[in-house]
């Protein structure tokens, strides 16, 4: 019996590519968000409201990730910004190599923010660093207030929590304070925003924060 000792992270290769992505973004002074949520939480709608609000104020480019179709890229393209669609063909998450490949066809000149909209899934994307500056987890009020406790890894790895669909709260049994308390028990450092893409509530506050973060970049 012989033993080969290999003390390293299992996803080291992904992490190396993620680091190269991050270095490239930082060199160009681009702030990168990795947007994650379960399917249907409202990531694309939130992105649309964000793009509408930031139009003419902050140049954004988008990388869309979906299992199938380029519907989301089409929605985003209406804003006249650079967008590239990654179709994973069944893959449940984006990885750093997919982002690195997508960057070959994404025009980054003048861009200050890149939003990566990950595949709708609260499990798998949690483990994959894409080279982002921060993970933004979107949890909608319709999903129930116990979501953070069911998917702790994702909430732990995120820096921002956006509670979306707050306009529906009067019709739901879920309690937003409980949702936030649960999320903060997993990750006390989470920056929390509350939004509605129907009424635009909270969109200005979220965008203001994003602009502030971008202003910190060189």
């Amino acid at each position: 019996m012989s033993v080969i000792t290999i003390e390293r992270k299992v996803l080291e290769k992904n992490d190396e590519i993620a680091k190269a992505n991050r270095d490239l973004f930082r060199q160009r002074g681009i702030y990168v968000l990795n947007m994650v949520s379960s399917p249907g939480a409202g990531k694309t709608s939130l992105l649309e409201r964000t793009l509408a609000h930031l139009h003419g104020r902050l140049p954004v480019a988008v990388i869309e990730g979906d299992v199938q179709t380029d519907f989301d890229a089409q929605r985003v393209a209406k804003f006249g910004i650079p967008v590239v669609q990654i179709v994973t063909n069944g893959g449940c998450h984006l990885d750093a190599k997919l982002i690195s490949d997508a960057l070959q066809s994404l025009e980054l000149t003048g861009v200050k923010v890149v939003v990566i909209e990950n595949v709708g899934n609260l499990v798998c994307p949690a483990n994959y660093d894409l080279g982002e500056e921060i993970k933004v987890v979107v949890a909608s009020t319709t999903e129930g207030d116990d979501k953070p406790l069911k998917y702790p890894t994702m909430f732990r790895n995120a820096g921002v929590l956006i509670v979306n669909k707050i306009d529906l709260l009067p019709h739901l049994p879920s309690n937003i304070e409980t949702l936030k308390k649960n999320a903060l028990s997993i990750n006390p450092k989470l920056q929390v925003f509350e939004t509605s893409c129907t009424t635009d509530a909270g969109i200005a506050e979220w965008c203001e924060w994003l602009e502030k973060m971008c202003a910190k970049k060189p």
């Binding site: 019996m1 012989s2 033993v3 080969i4 000792t5 290999i6 003390e7 390293r8 992270k9 299992v10 996803l11 483990n127 890894t153 732990r156 903060l184 028990s185 006390p188």
Partner: peptide, 19 residues
């Protein structure tokens, strides 16, 4: 909530045994 995670989030390769 002023806590630090000491372990439990890792995914680490450690060794390969050959016969």
């Amino acid at each position: 909530v002023d806590t630090t995670i000491l372990s439990g989030t890792e995914m680490q390769f450690s060794e390969i045994e050959l016969d």
